[in-house]
């Protein structure tokens, strides 16, 4: 009596049909995107590999020092030399390029979306389930439409990474801006600020710590996804891990994994430090220049 059957809802088939329709009708657009991204990543990759490794390591370490502190810079230097030493430098560079390009694109999409959500409660309600979906859907699933749309290679890896990494900057930008005290915004409006001025001069600066946490999360998710994306030919350190898994090569697997850890730690420390309000060497230099200029201005003002 009870074994009547419900007709199955063809959700999966519907999505597949949609993607196939997109491929059939919009493939031109995807080809253009693919070509652009391919040339960007290719150029970055070639450019970075053209620099002698030791010089690039020093440049990176200097950059880390400017943005964080001496200890972190020393740690990064050691880590990068280690990667070079175990012979995974080119793979590390290609992973780095993949992460940087996908994170930049994810931020270019994520931060404005977060801002728009603070402006429209309808958009906010609509985006909430979409973001939940994007974050909880197992990341492997994104690989399928990515391959269908872009084929095998770096670009589908970028695509899947961007989808996976975009929710944190959206959420944390939204959160940061909604947490800006109402009286600060009221003050700006009372002094004649336009909507754009309120955003630029009050909301964004005051929500910077939250937005930077979003950037940090975005980078971390980017790195973890880049490894998964190597399954569809994105290359880099992830591909080395996959190869080691296939061959049950523990030594190589551990080395590649370690290289990913080093890269992740460096990127994490740097991105976490920006916007945290801690004084950095770069901050001190800027401060010095500002003071210098202010002193100059003040002397000029007092002359008048």
């Amino acid at each position: 009596m009870l074994n009547f059957s419900l007709p199955k809802l063809e959700i999966g088939e519907a999505i597949e049909w949609l993607v196939r329709w997109i491929i059939a009708n919009l493939s031109v657009i995807f080809d253009v995107i693919k070509n652009i991204l391919n040339s960007i990543t290719g150029a970055l990759n070639d450019g970075l590999l053209a620099i002698p490794t030791i010089i690039l390591i020093i440049i990176f370490a200097l950059g880390v020092w400017l943005l964080t502190s001496k200890t972190t810079a020393l740690l990064s230097f050691t880590g990068l030399v280690l990667i070079w030493n175990i012979g995974l430098w080119p793979q590390m560079i290609s992973t780095l390029v993949l992460v940087v390009v996908s994170v930049v694109i994810a931020l270019l999409i994520g931060i404005p979306t977060g801002i728009l959500m603070t402006r429209s409660s309808k958009l906010e309600t609509a985006m909430r389930p979409v973001l939940d979906f994007m974050q909880t859907m197992p990341p492997f699933v994104y690989l399928i439409p990515a391959v269908m749309l872009f084929g095998i290679g770096v670009v589908p890896g970028l695509f899947a990474t961007i989808i996976f990494a975009v929710p944190p900057p959206v959420r944390l930008t939204y959160l940061g801006i909604t947490q800006v005290p109402e009286d600060m915004k009221e003050m700006a409006v009372a002094f004649g600020a336009s909507d754009r001025q309120v955003l630029r001069k009050v909301e964004l600066p005051l929500s910077l710590p939250s937005i930077m946490t979003g950037v940090n999360q975005c980078i971390m998710l980017g790195i973890s996804m880049v490894v998964i994306a190597s399954m569809i030919g994105a290359g880099g350190l992830g591909a080395e891990v996959m190869r080691a898994v296939n061959r049950l090569d523990l030594a190589h697997g551990f080395e590649s994994g370690l290289a990913i850890v080093v890269l992740a730690i460096v990127l994490d420390r740097v991105s976490r430090n920006i916007g945290s309000g801690k004084t950095t060497p770069a901050g001190r230099i800027i401060e010095y220049l500002k003071k210098h200029r202010k002193a100059k201005l003040e002397s000029r003002v007092s002359q008048i």
Binding site: P181, D183, M184, E186, M187, A190, F191, V202, P205, L206, L208
Partner: peptide, 11 residues
């Protein structure tokens, strides 16, 4: 305008 809780921008 002058505000009760000052509304001075902390940054």
């Amino acid at each position: 305008m002058v505000f009760q809780h000052f509304a001075i921008l902390p940054n």
